[in-house]
Each structure stands twice: as structure tokens, then as C-alpha cells.
Design a binder for these strands. Structure first.
Lengths: 221, 221
DNA sequence: AAACATTTGTCCGTATGTATA
DNA sequence: ATATACATACGGACAAATGTT
């Protein structure tokens, strides 16, 4: 949860961390498919490290819910179903709605400017037909609000859900979902609510800004 | 997050799991104090296992936010402050409110009976002055609703927060907070809302049932 | 500035346990 | 039922990195 108050620049990257991010990427992007069996010795071979950092990485991935380990038996990539998206988004929406509530009370003028700038870029990316870039800017927008809410639990849970959602999109979609100008307008409403320090509206709009894409996504697949 | 669909009875308990639950208990109960430095070799000695399962347990505890590891440098129990409770409870309240929303739509009559029975026991425990038992029954009540909501993300995040809240109570309180009949009444309202399939009321009451104790707790210390 | 002490990070061998034949 | 193959769980030794004297 915590991302502890640590300032250490990750200059040196450990074998465990490399293994973790690589395997995580493989799972999210579908290189390692849902249900696939994982053998630590093989992964160790692939990544040119010993089995220890692999095992450690796999255990962290289990906590994240990307693999499931059956002690003494086997380790597999977790499955994923279309309906799962209906369980991820509402939780993320609740968390981000809460974040917006806090941020509305804490945000500073220059931070509002940052959100406006992000939303402008977001709109442009949609206009010029860059859905992947739009998706990334959208995430930045949401993550900034989460950070400003100053609650490590929200940040941690949100990050975890974003990983699962990203994986879901990779597995079930072939391309990033095209964001719409509706989303740009919702972002603008959220920003306006921040300026008015109206936490109720900010929270409600934030929830809507996440539940609407969920429905679109679920209807699509 | 997921507690995958696995039915394996944990008959055999691994060294890693023993280490994990023991160290976790030590941290929650304050035997290992906030900020205390942890040396895996020492812990390995204390628990009569090698460093491997200890290291694995510590990494899981880091994800849980109970320890913070500075790669190559040191590992410490995370700090905790009085104000942290104001960050834990609102998140838990949001999650449980969402759970109540879903449960209201899914719950079966016999499950409502179980909640009623738990609430009766809860009230009795308060009456006869058994605050610790009351706290445990209260947790069962909430956890049953979370389980019934059938959302592994809520369950996972909720469990994580409960650990931190439990730790908080151990560190800053000397005894479990005495639950009140107000809480019993709130539980009854939640149950009533379930019977009516009124998810809005269930959700609102659930939130209140968590935010009220937060305020009492924060005012107390 | 360099050598030392301490602690963490990694490797690999072995034991244990599970599933299959 | 027993034996065999296989993957994981654990232990112990070594290497690397950090902070200190």
C-alpha cells in the first residue's frame, strides 16, 4: 500500500525487479497466456538469473493476482473472463471518486492548471486519432488526482486495479479503446468542480467518468 | 488480489507462511515496533528457519505496507501515526459501501438470517461487556457482506486495510474500542435495507457504520 | 581514502512433496 | 500399491553493495 516515504533513486536494478517487471509485462500483454503453467527454472533460464529472484517475483505477482501458486504443486498465470471487467471498474470508480473528494479540498491553483493542460492534450490526442496516447494521458490525469488526494491506500489499490484493467484490454481487445470527447467534457467538469471546491460534484463526475467506459467496453466484447 | 478459485485445504503449512503470520503478528501487536530495523538473519534464527522463507515473508509484508525495504541497505517496520487512521477508514468505508450495494442485489434469505444472528451476538457481546469478542463479531459481520458481494478486489483490499486498522488499534489503544448499541442499530438498518433490496440505503448506512467509529477513535487519542 | 564490518542479493544443491504410470 | 518423474520449498555459501572506522 504504501510506497513508503523513500527517495532512493532506483539507479541499481536488482534481478528480482527485472524479473518482476518482465514477467508482469509478459502476463499483461498476453505473451504468457491466462492459465499457462509457469516453471521457475524455465523462467530463470529465459531471464538469465537464478531461480531465487524468479520465485520472489512470482510471489509478488501472486499478491497482485496475476499468478496463482499451489504450494508444492504448480504455478499458473491466473485466468481472466470478460465479466471480470464488471468487478474491476466499479472498485476503481469508488476509489477515484473518493480521491476526487479529497483532492477537491486540497488542490492548489497550479495543480488545477496541470490538470487543464493534461485534458487539453487528451482532447488533442483524440482529435488526431492517437488512441494509445490518449489512453496514457487519461491515466496520467487520473493518477495525478489520486496522488493529490494524499492517500497511499487509494494509490496502492488503484495501481493494482490499473494493472488488471490494462491486462484485460490487452487480452480482450486488439487495440486501445478509442476515448471520446465525452470523456474530455467529464474531465472538464471535474476540474470545474475542483475550482469550486465542490467535492460532491467532483466525486460524482469521477465515478461517471469511469463507469461509462466500463459499460462501453463491456458492450463491445 | 484474488484468492483464486482454489479449494486446497492448507493442511501442510510452509515455513514461509509460518514466518509470514508470525512476523505479521509481531508487527500488528507491536512486539516489533514501528521503525524497528529487521535483520533477516536474526529473524531466521528466531523462527528456526533459513533466510529464504524469511526474505519471502518480508517481501509480502512490504507489499502489505507493514515493512519497507531499502534495497541493499536495510529493512524496517513501517512507521505509523495517529492521523493515518483518517486515511484508512474512509477507504474501507468506500469499499464496504460498494460491497453493500452489490450484496443488496445478491443476498438470499438464509444469508440475511446469518447476518441477523451475527448482529444478535454482537449486541449480546456488548451488553455483557466483552469488547474484544464484540470487535471480532463486528468484523465477521462486515466480512460476510464483503464475501457476499462476490468481488475479489474488494475482499483483498478490505483485508489489507483491516490489518492496518488492527495494528493501529494495538499501537495506539491499550484495549479494543468499546462498541456501542449505535452500531447494533446501524447493522439492523443495513439488514433491513438488504431485505428491501434497497442498495442506496444499505450503502449509505454501511459508510456511516464505519466513519462514525473512525471519528470516535480519532477523538479519543 | 581504503579497508572493514554488516546486511542484503543471488546462486545452486538437496530434500520434500505431488502427480502419474 | 509402489515406484518414478517432476516441480517446488528450503538451506547454506558466496558475492555485491553500503556505511563506517
Amino acid at each position: 500500500m504504501p510506497v513508503p516515504p523513500d527517495f532512493s533513486a532506483p539507479i541499481r536494478i536488482s534481478a528480482k525487479e527485472r524479473a518482476l517487471s518482465q514477467i508482469q509485462r509478459w502476463i499483461i500483454e498476453g505473451t504468457l497466456q491466462p492459465g499457462e503453467k509457469l516453471i521457475d527454472a524455465e523462467l530463470a533460464d529465459s531471464l538469465a538469473v537464478s531461480r531465487t529472484p524468479i520465485r520472489e517475483a512470482l510471489q509478488l505477482l501472486e499478491v497482485q493476482g496475476l499468478v496463482s501458486m499451489h504450494p508444492g504443486r504448480e504455478t499458473r498465470v491466473t485466468g481472466i473472463e470478460k465479466e471480470d471487467i464488471l468487478k474491476m471498474y466499479p472498485v476503481l470508480a469508488s476509489l477515484h471518486a473518493l480521491a476526487a473528494e479529497y483532492t477537491a479540498q486540497l488542490i492548489l491553483p497550479e495543480q488545477i492548471e496541470m490538470l487543464k493542460e493534461l485534458n487539453t492534450q487528451f482532447g488533442k490526442a483524440i482529435e488526431i486519432g492517437q488512441p494509445f496516447q490518449a489512453m496514457e494521458i487519461d491515466e496520467q490525469f487520473h493518477n495525478l488526482i489520486v496522488e493529490l488526494s494524499d492517500n497511499p491506500y487509494i494509490a496502492s489499490f488503484s495501481a493494482s486495479l490499473q494493472i488488471h484493467i490494462r491486462r484485460f484490454k490487452y487480452i480482450f481487445l486488439n487495440q486501445p479503446l478509442t476515448a471520446t470527447q465525452t470523456s474530455v467534457a467529464e474531465h472538464a467538469s471535474i476540474i470545474l468542480a475542483f475550482e469550486k471546491r465542490d467535492k460532491e460534484t467532483a466525486s460524482a463526475m469521477m465515478k461517471q467518468n469511469l463507469l461509462r467506459p466500463m459499460r462501453e467496453l463491456h458492450a463491445l466484447i
